[in-house]
Deep mutational scan, measured.
Amino acid sequence: ENVFHPVECSYCHSESMMGFRYRCQQCHNYQLCQDCFWRGHAGGSHSNQHQMKEYTSWKS
């Protein structure tokens, strides 16, 4: 089941984030949609070496 997250992806700027959401544990307010995370995208001061937390629902 695809879950809708009402936040913007920090890389592709999609405002309709579906599926899993990934939030960086080091960068303030840096979040990736499932597609950008799986493709290994990073931007700004974010590094792929940073720990990311996976969210499967909006409330989590």
Rank of each mutant, 00 (worst) to 15 (best):
Glu1Gly: 04
Glu1Trp: 03
Glu1Gln: 04
Glu1Phe: 00
Asn2Glu: 12
Asn2Asp: 02
Asn2Cys: 04
Asn2Thr: 12
Asn2Leu: 07
Asn2His: 03
Val3Asp: 11
Val3Lys: 15
Val3His: 15
Val3Gln: 14
Val3Arg: 11
Val3Gly: 05
Val3Met: 13
Val3Phe: 05
Phe4Ala: 10
Phe4Ser: 07
Phe4Lys: 09
Phe4Ile: 15
Phe4Cys: 11
Phe4Arg: 09
His5Phe: 06
His5Tyr: 13
His5Pro: 08
His5Met: 08
Pro6Lys: 10
Pro6Phe: 08
Pro6Glu: 10
Pro6Leu: 06
Pro6Gly: 09
Pro6Ile: 10
Pro6Met: 09
Pro6Val: 09
Val7Tyr: 07
Val7His: 09
Val7Lys: 09
Val7Asn: 14
Val7Gly: 09
Val7Phe: 03
Val7Met: 09
Glu8Pro: 11
Glu8Cys: 05
Glu8Asn: 06
Glu8Ser: 08
Glu8Tyr: 07
Glu8Asp: 06
Cys9Arg: 00
Cys9Asp: 00
Cys9Gln: 00
Cys9Ile: 00
Ser10Asp: 06
Ser10Tyr: 04
Ser10Lys: 02
Ser10Val: 01
Ser10Glu: 03
Ser10Ala: 10
Tyr11Thr: 06
Tyr11Arg: 03
Tyr11Cys: 05
Tyr11Lys: 06
Tyr11Gly: 08
Cys12Ala: 00
Cys12Thr: 00
Cys12His: 02
Cys12Arg: 01
Cys12Leu: 00
Cys12Asn: 01
His13Tyr: 07
His13Trp: 02
His13Leu: 06
Ser14His: 09
Ser14Pro: 01
Ser14Asn: 11
Ser14Arg: 12
Glu15Ser: 12
Ser16Pro: 10
Ser16Gln: 12
Ser16Thr: 11
Ser16His: 06
Ser16Asn: 11
Ser16Met: 10
Ser16Val: 11
Met17Gln: 11
Met17Glu: 14
Met17His: 14
Met18Lys: 12
Met18Tyr: 13
Met18Ala: 15
Gly19Met: 07
Gly19Tyr: 05
Gly19Leu: 07
Gly19Asn: 10
Phe20His: 14
Phe20Asp: 14
Phe20Lys: 15
Phe20Met: 11
Phe20Gln: 14
Arg21Phe: 06
Arg21Ser: 14
Arg21Gly: 07
Arg21Pro: 13
Arg21Gln: 03
Arg21Asn: 09
Tyr22Val: 09
Tyr22His: 09
Tyr22Ile: 04
Arg23Met: 11
Arg23Gln: 12
Cys24Lys: 00
Cys24Glu: 02
Cys24Arg: 00
Cys24Leu: 00
Gln25Asn: 08
Gln25Cys: 08
Gln25Tyr: 04
Gln25Gly: 06
Gln25Arg: 07
Gln25Glu: 13
Gln25Ala: 05
Gln26Asn: 12
Gln26Arg: 05
Gln26Trp: 02
Gln26Met: 03
Gln26Ile: 11
Cys27Ala: 01
Cys27Lys: 01
Cys27Gln: 00
His28Glu: 13
His28Asp: 15
His28Ser: 12
His28Met: 11
His28Leu: 11
His28Pro: 13
Asn29His: 09
Asn29Val: 05
Asn29Thr: 05
Asn29Arg: 06
Tyr30Lys: 02
Tyr30Trp: 03
Tyr30Met: 04
Tyr30Ser: 02
Tyr30His: 02
Tyr30Ile: 02
Gln31His: 08
Gln31Ile: 09
Leu32Gly: 02
Leu32Trp: 01
Leu32Phe: 00
Leu32Ser: 04
Leu32Lys: 02
Leu32Pro: 01
Leu32Asp: 03
Cys33Leu: 00
Cys33Val: 01
Gln34His: 07
Gln34Leu: 03
Gln34Thr: 06
Gln34Asp: 05
Gln34Pro: 07
Gln34Ser: 09
Asp35Trp: 04
Asp35Ser: 10
Asp35Cys: 08
Asp35Glu: 11
Cys36Asn: 00
Cys36Ile: 01
Cys36Gly: 02
Cys36Glu: 03
Cys36Met: 01
Cys36Tyr: 01
Phe37Thr: 03
Phe37Asp: 02
Phe37Glu: 08
Phe37Pro: 01
Phe37Arg: 08
Phe37Ser: 05
Phe37Gln: 11
Phe37Leu: 05
Trp38Glu: 15
Trp38Phe: 14
Trp38Gly: 15
Trp38Ile: 15
Trp38Asn: 15
Arg39Glu: 13
Arg39Lys: 15
Arg39Ser: 13
Arg39Gly: 11
Gly40Thr: 03
Gly40His: 05
Gly40Trp: 04
Gly40Lys: 10
Gly40Leu: 03
Gly40Asn: 07
Gly40Tyr: 14
Gly40Val: 05
Gly40Ser: 05
Gly40Met: 03
His41Phe: 10
His41Ile: 04
His41Asn: 13
Ala42Ser: 12
Ala42Tyr: 03
Gly43Met: 09
Gly43Pro: 01
Gly43Arg: 03
Gly43Cys: 10
Gly44Gln: 00
Gly44Ser: 06
Gly44Pro: 02
Gly44Glu: 04
Gly44His: 01
Gly44Arg: 05
Ser45Pro: 10
Ser45Glu: 13
Ser45Phe: 05
His46Tyr: 02
His46Asp: 06
His46Met: 06
His46Gly: 07
Ser47Arg: 08
Ser47Asn: 12
Ser47Glu: 10
Ser47His: 08
Ser47Gly: 05
Ser47Leu: 04
Ser47Lys: 12
Ser47Ala: 04
Asn48Lys: 05
Asn48Ser: 10
Asn48Ile: 06
Gln49Glu: 14
Gln49Val: 10
Gln49Ile: 06
Gln49Thr: 13
Gln49Asn: 12
His50Thr: 02
His50Pro: 02
His50Glu: 02
His50Gly: 02
His50Trp: 01
Gln51Phe: 02
Gln51Met: 04
Met52Asn: 01
Met52Val: 10
Met52His: 00
Met52Gln: 04
Met52Thr: 07
Met52Ile: 04
Lys53Val: 14
Lys53Ile: 08
Glu54Phe: 03
Glu54Gly: 04
Glu54Val: 05
Tyr55Ile: 09
Tyr55Asp: 15
Tyr55Pro: 09
Tyr55Leu: 13
Tyr55Lys: 02
Tyr55Glu: 14
Thr56Glu: 15
Thr56Asp: 15
Ser57His: 14
Ser57Cys: 13
Ser57Ile: 08
Ser57Glu: 12
Ser57Thr: 11
Lys59Cys: 11
Lys59Ile: 03
Lys59Asn: 12
Lys59Phe: 07
Lys59Leu: 11
Lys59His: 13
Lys59Trp: 09
Ser60Asn: 05
Ser60Cys: 05
Ser60Arg: 14
